[in-house]
Design a binder for these strands. Structure first.
Lengths: 226, 226
DNA sequence: CCAATTTCGAACCGGTCGGTACTATAAGAG
DNA sequence: CTCTTATAGTACCGACCGGTTCGAAATTGG
């Protein structure tokens, strides 16, 4: 039963709307926003030009819809990657690795629509959307950090907000490197390394294993209260 | 003596070549590559259309020249920021803060031509240039880490390459957030936090101040030898 | 003052772009 | 079978874009 309700009246569409939307995502993802022409979309989506305008509106409207759908899907997957593992460190590794894998997926454009394409779109609504998306991602990571505090994995004075921003920054950096062609293997290794780092706590003073550090007193470098 | 040699013969130019190049940088920086039209450049550079072609070549050639000049200047400033301070931690803070300040400079476009604009240009030469620039930046940071090892600030088994990549990723992330409108103050704070983090060493086991961590054994998360 | 040289500014050209009108086609409704 | 509805496909339109041509202007050399 592919459709239980009555079929609409006129000539049936020759394409699936969501499938076309996904194809549009790939087009924008691989060519950017300004770089994409309507003909690119027509060719990539398998939708006739007038149908495209009738159903999806103009290029900007279509892009916004693509952006929202993409962000929702990717956000869900990212949240899943972050919240599935048991330990905090593995959660972060999973989160970062998910970003890398998604950005280096074969059969799809490299990088990320939200990181590599959308920020360059000169449009207030897009900017606002990105701000919100970023804030949401950071909030997600913060939440995971707080769970880690509850579980005793990190102390209660752990700099949650700052480290969460840092994780998001790292995700962006890894994603951009993916788009520049850095191999997945390298990025996955760096993601693991980053996960190790992000859960580290500041040292009380400086007790490096290689004896006395010469001028290791930085005059700073501690979180508020030890 | 603005010119010691004989003045060239014909009608003198009505603009300064380097000044025009700088203005072109701003145009590309603020509008991207695909988003820029020749008329944008003509208006922004104060150079007549035919003169633009005669002197700078077409849009792609001009962009490559802009890119090279920008990277050279910015690379020099970044290296200076990185190599001036005495301690490793302050070097990294200086490096990251320089990136933030440059990306949030008033009177100039936000973000960074190398981070926010160039990666989206669909051109093999641009890609190659970016790869080299990134490698150069990472090498610079690695060099600073090795100096830190020599000075005894960090142990000799410090994961130099991975941490250097991490610093570059962080720089990119901060820069992109700058372009998205995150205030400078926030970014500077995060840059400091990041500098603190990047020089940290892994703990031997896990001796957080908040008693026993429940499931803190990750089965991983250590650098080769403690 | 005149010729040579170089740049400037406007106008121009073929091509492409975003967006639309028009017609043919495929379905259900009666 | 005919009418209505909705989409497909083509062809078209004005606007704009990248790039060039050409005459006017500004300067040096004689």
């Amino acid at each position: 039963m592919i459709q239980n309700s009555t079929r609409p009246r006129g000539r049936p569409r020759s394409f699936d709307e969501l499938e076309a939307l996904e194809k549009a995502t790939q087009v924008f993802w691989s060519k950017g926003y300004d770089g994409v022409t309507i003909d690119d979309l027509v060719a990539g989506m398998g939708v006739g030009r007038p149908s495209l305008y009738a159903i999806f509106g103009d290029k900007r409207t279509l892009f916004l819809r693509v952006l929202r759908a993409y962000a929702e899907a990717k956000g869900a997957r990212a949240a899943n990657a972050l919240l599935s593992p048991n330990t905090l460190r593995d959660s972060l590794a999973s989160f970062l690795k998910h970003a890398v894998e998604s950005a280096t997926q074969e059969g799809s454009a490299t990088g990320c629509l939200l990181v590599c394409v959308a920020p360059l779109v000169d449009d207030e609504e897009v900017r606002q959307f990105l701000q919100n998306a970023t804030a949401g991602a950071a909030a997600l990571v913060q939440h995971r950090f707080r769970d880690g505090i509850s579980a005793g994995e990190i102390p209660s004075d752990f700099p949650v907000a700052a480290r969460a921003s840092l994780v998001i920054d790292l995700t962006r950096g890894l994603t951009m490197r993916a788009q520049m062609g850095t191999p997945r293997k390298t990025l996955l290794r760096d993601a693991e390394e980053a996960a190790d780092l992000v859960v580290l706590l500041p040292r009380e003073v400086s007790r490096g294993p290689s004896g006395s550090a010469r001028k290791a007193s930085t005059g700073r470098g501690r979180v508020p209260r030890p």
